[in-house]
């Protein structure tokens, strides 16, 4: 699929400063799992992608990061044109080859289809950017682990039940696993593999 130039939109208005701001937002989110953050830039996102999802793509992806897209995102020429133009990431159809995956929650494949890293190099695993229907701090889940002082509540709406179960089960394989960034509109929240998830409130 080629880049369709009349579907291109602007990326960050100040790529250097906006990438840094996005990274610090993401760093805060990843180091304190379950903490919901708001992104400030950019102002428009391509196709069906949320502003927060587009911000993470602009800030973190480049030609070194093979990217996997879920079915409807792959078919959206506006999104793929803008990803190719702004990020230059090679798009891969094989989830296991991807460093990053961008997916609508409803279209997620099995968790095991993504790269979980290996025992000597667990950092070579995939980072999943998952667009969901809603994020709030109500305690559907209770999170514990590094970055959380005691425990923290989190609700992710629209995540398939099977995927949630696989995510919880994957914690037993730590340090292997994937790191998730959930995005919805301007909100993002991160769930690294080190976070333990318990269903229900405290």
């Amino acid at each position: 699929m080629a880049v369709v130039s009349d579907q291109l939109i602007a990326g960050f208005s100040d790529p250097v400063q906006d990438s840094q701001t996005l990274f610090r937002t993401l760093l805060k989110a990843m180091s304190e799992p379950g903490l919901i953050r708001q992104i400030e830039q950019p102002e428009r996102a391509p196709g069906p992608l949320s502003l927060a999802g587009w911000a993470v793509a602009l800030g973190m992806l480049d030609a070194d990061t093979p990217l996997w897209l879920s079915r409807s995102l792959m078919q959206d020429s506006t999104l793929s044109s803008n990803l190719r133009f702004h990020c230059q990431s090679p798009l891969t159809a094989c989830a296991a080859e991807a460093d990053f995956a961008l997916a609508l929650a409803a279209e997620l494949p099995e968790l095991a289809s993504f790269n979980q890293g290996c025992a000597e190099y667990p950092d070579r695993s995939a980072t999943l950017i998952i667009q969901v229907e809603g994020i709030s701090d109500e305690p559907d889940w209770t999170l514990t682990g590094p970055g959380i002082e005691s425990e923290r509540g989190l609700t992710i709406r629209g995540l398939p039940q099977a995927f949630t179960e696989q995510l919880i089960a994957s914690r037993r394989r730590f340090p292997l696993g994937v790191d998730c960034i959930f995005v919805c509109a301007e909100q993002l929240v991160a769930l690294p593999r080190s976070t333990q998830i318990r269903i229900g409130g405290a």
Binding site: D123, G147, D179
Partner: peptide
């Protein structure tokens, strides 16, 4: 560039930092 390093290098280091945070001590 801002803070000396080029943006491509910063992105690579930022990705490494996020993986480091996700696997504490690794």
């Amino acid at each position: 560039n801002f803070a000396y390093l080029d943006e491509q290098t910063k992105r690579m280091i930022r990705r490494a930092i996020l993986k480091g945070v996700a696997i504490p001590g690794y």
